[in-house]
Design a protein around this nucleic acid. Structure first.
Length: 364
DNA sequence: GAATCGTGGCA
DNA sequence: TTGCCAAGATT
């Protein structure tokens, strides 16, 4: 005969009980007490937070999430926003393809889906910037669908629970299968968030607090006395060093020369000061001789900035420009207005090296 | 499967 | 100080 419950339900119960007591309160989250008062998750809020949280910490996301919601309260508002404004608001958060896809996704939802997010994983995943994880997360959290949500936290929890020795990312299909078997029909969104909270606060990469874990009685890695051994990951490559030069041109009126980077690739669509190519070797192409236009370029130090897959050593040059130079690929921006620009952190560092007070009054 | 794509915090 | 890594997606 058929049983009335799935095999997984008993495993989900201790975690949901733990979540009811120890869940984190987050600005984008409808916590269990809120849900008990009838508050529903807003798909726009869930989607926005999930995209911002991709490879990004909760503390880093909080101010950006608040600012985006204040400026663009609905997905239609975001769809109608100027791309430059969205990129500028995203500046500093990193992985700028997320911002480009965020705008595209908002436009698709507003214009193709009549302002309503799809409620299925399949529908969500067809949208720009929404992959396996985000589709499942939005489906589960915003629409209460039984979707198997697997992010880095869940990978860690699952790999320990079952002592999976296969290295990532090869082990992902098996882990996803395990998550699918554990995910309950009841409260799938809370289950997903509980798994992630558990990974973030108990089942941590280093020194996990196993004595406080609702899975402590059934965790295979703990039984083996080596939870930190999991998940197994492939060794990472060392970071190469690239060299380049950046040029900060300032007029007597206090205008600085800026350009917009091409849409694709590193820092795509973001604002920059002129720079040379960033190459493996330090040579003439990375010196003042490679400036965008002739001027009295003076060296003012080096900025070191670490990207995901290389380290950049940027030689900084500054020049006072007597009169505005005609250019066809950039513009002159008042230094007092830099906080409105889509300047990634590396460009802010470069400008700050040449003009120490440039951002003095633009940050809290 | 492997590379690409940011940033800041922390042990 | 240096390495690690945080609610991944795209090509």
């Amino acid at each position: 005969m058929m049983t009335s419950t799935t095999l997984d339900a008993p495993a989900a119960k201790p975690l949901l009980d733990w979540y009811d007591r120890h869940h984190r309160d987050l600005p984008w989250r409808v916590s269990p007490p809120m849900a008990a008062r009838g508050i529903k998750a807003d798909p726009y809020h869930v989607w926005l937070s999930e995209v911002m949280l991709q490879q990004t910490t909760v503390p880093a996301v909080k101010p950006y999430f608040a600012n985006f919601l204040a400026r663009w309260p609905t997905v239609r508002d975001l769809a109608d926003a100027a791309s430059e404004d969205v990129m500028a608001a995203w500046a500093g958060l990193g992985y700028y393809a997320r911002a480009r896809n965020l705008k595209k996704c908002a436009e698709a939802v507003a214009r193709i889906h009549d302002g309503v997010f799809p409620s299925t994983e399949e529908g969500l995943k067809s949208l720009p910037g929404i992959g396996d994880y985000t589709a499942a997360a939005v489906a589960a959290i915003a629409f209460n669908r039984q979707a198997a949500v697997m992010d880095g936290n869940v990978e860690r929890v699952i790999s320990r629970l079952f002592a999976i020795a296969t290295p990532l990312p090869a082990a992902k299909p098996l882990m996803k299968q395990k998550v699918g078997l554990l995910t309950p029909q009841h409260r799938p969104g809370d289950f997903a968030q509980a798994m992630m909270d558990l990974g973030a606060t108990i089942c941590t990469p280093k020194r996990p607090a196993c004595s406080l874990c609702p899975f402590r009685g059934s965790c295979e890695a703990l039984r083996l006395h080596d939870p930190e051994h999991f998940p197994v990951k492939a060794a990472k490559k060392e970071k190469p060093v690239r060299h380049g030069a950046a040029f900060i041109a300032v007029t007597a009126d206090g205008d600085i020369f800026l350009r917009r980077r091409i849409e694709s690739g590193l820092l795509g669509g973001m604002t920059e000061v002129p720079t040379t190519n960033w190459t493996a070797r330090q040579d003439g192409a990375t010196s003042a001789g490679a400036a965008p236009f002739p001027a009295a370029w003076e060296p003012c130090g080096t900025v070191i900035h670490v990207f995901t897959h290389f380290e950049l050593r940027l030689s900084i040059y500054r020049a006072a420009i007597p009169s505005l130079i005609q250019t066809d690929n950039g513009w002159w921006e008042p230094v007092t207005n830099l906080d409105s620009q889509a300047l990634p952190t590396v460009m802010k560092k470069a400008i700050a090296a040449a003009i120490p007070l440039a951002f003095k009054y633009s940050k809290d």
